[in-house]
Design a protein around this nucleic acid. Structure first.
Lengths: 269, 269
DNA sequence: AAACTAGTTTCAAATAATGGAACCTGCAAG
DNA sequence: CTTGCAGGTTCCATTATTTGAAACTAGTTT
């Protein structure tokens, strides 16, 4: 049921092809895709044609290569605006960024991974893995742990089971048990650290963005390097970040259903 | 063949539903979609289920409403980055915006319409129709005309046939013939004006972004109001804009196929 | 309790997807 | 020139999925 790429659905297959193209990063040729796809030549061919016909993929006849299409770009904008967190959070991210001068992340959970939805660079930029639009591991990043800590208990096992538990550094938590303890601590104090668990020298504080009903909407983090600061110093930012996380959460909720009565079902006056 | 929403393809239908949700702007309920969709209840229902299952839509059980999903957001980012123009143009747009202090647009052709891919607001913001991610008419906007003027002759008739020719203002061109003359003039001088043809009081200069082979990659425009400036004054910006358009075009091309040799077909040294 | 509304499920008929194999290229080696 | 071949494209009978009217369920309003 909750398997990876299931059998049914032409739509599912088409979307998988889209992902495939997206994964490649740049223009891809038919044969490259064929190698990576589980579909026979003819099937893949038709899927690509459909996708191109639909504007979800663009075909460059000169290079005979495929790229993500303009229709997707258009959806992109709407999705971005509609993803509710991102547009609402944007000004607050700006504010936070201006205030702390360090790298700031806004992330959401995408299945069992972290999706960096938005990012502000530090005044003195630092190279690191994260990037808006990229996904990263949940079990060894500040934002990831901050969100996992507040996910419904019933969902947690499934999420943990999907982590890779790769030991990025010698501080990485590499078992569900070890992480569970950490998560309990995070839950207790309300925020998470990343103590070089993903990239050496990179540390951060992260807070979840929680809805009034306790649901995890996303997470905020402020990231820096061991060369510049310490976890203790970063902890000093918690009130600021918390403040902003709460504001974002509130705005998200109040704003969410302004159009409730746009169609029928309006209460008669 | 080139009709609107054709008959064939489950994928096409699913994507149309996606568009439908996107078009609504915010969370939508089943019945709202049902009203707007050409599909019977059961069909729409199943399409939605598939889309939700695929993560392209998100379903909020609390409000029983649909939103664009996180998978789409992820694809969105990649599409944006891959759409080659947008990410490359971004710093140049910033530069142009800083230099002119007026509203700046970056647009591409999406079928026969203009897709505003990016935008910078004027230092003293002006209200206008355009918005990043929105589509607008091609026949009565600066960027639209700039692009139409340089489209291959063989494609032009089809594009013109798809325009609505709505008279937005009394300066709007409302026939293909009238526009053709205008396009010839634009082609001759290398840039287009919008002389209040779409919105009263709104004027702009626009230049196409052309590849070295003369292909239309997109267009740039600087927009203002009749209250603030004149077309003649805007024309003064042409060299600046042209310069930037050329830079963008060049960067697009050099950058486009860095991974050409990642697979076979590399020339042996 | 009756009449709606909104959403969900069923099932036989209709339609679209499948993929093995044949078929085109254009090009490079023999 | 001919042969071989890899990247693409098209065919077509078979198979599986999609279809949608209608029946059903669960809430809500009258």
């Amino acid at each position: 049921m909750a398997a990876s790429a299931a059998s049914d659905g032409t739509v599912a297959k088409a979307l998988e092809v889209l992902d495939l193209v997206a994964a490649h990063g740049r223009a891809v040729r038919f044969s490259d895709l064929l190698a990576d796809s589980p579909y026979p030549k003819a099937t893949l061919y038709r899927l690509l044609q459909t996708l191109v016909g639909q504007g979800m993929l663009a075909f460059d006849p000169h290079h005979s290569s495929y790229t993500l299409g303009i229709r997707l770009v258009r959806l992109a904008h709407v999705a971005w605006q509609q993803s509710s967190l991102a547009p609402i959070a944007r000004p607050h991210l700006d504010r936070l960024s201006a205030e702390v001068g360090e790298t700031v992340h806004l992330a959401q959970l995408d299945h069992a991974q972290v999706l960096y939805v938005d990012k502000r660079n530090a005044r003195e930029p630092v190279h690191m893995y994260s990037q808006a639009g990229k996904v990263g591991p949940a079990y060894c990043t500040g934002v990831g742990k901050a969100m996992l800590a507040f996910v419904p208990e019933t969902d947690l096992p499934a999420l943990l089971a999907q982590q890779s538990w790769h030991r990025f550094t010698d501080k990485t938590f590499t078992t569900p048990e070890a992480l569970q303890a950490e998560l309990a601590a995070i839950r207790a104090r309300g925020f998470a650290f990343d103590d070089e668990e993903h990239e050496p020298g990179i540390i951060c504080v992260a807070l979840p963005i929680l809805s009034s009903r306790g649901g995890v909407l996303g997470a905020l983090s402020v990231t820096s390097t061991t060369a510049r600061t310490t976890l203790a110093a970063l902890q000093g930012l918690v009130p600021t970040i918390s403040q902003i996380a709460q504001t974002i959460a509130q705005e998200t909720e109040t704003w969410r259903f302004p159009e409730q009565g746009a169609h029928p079902l309006r209460k008669r006056a």
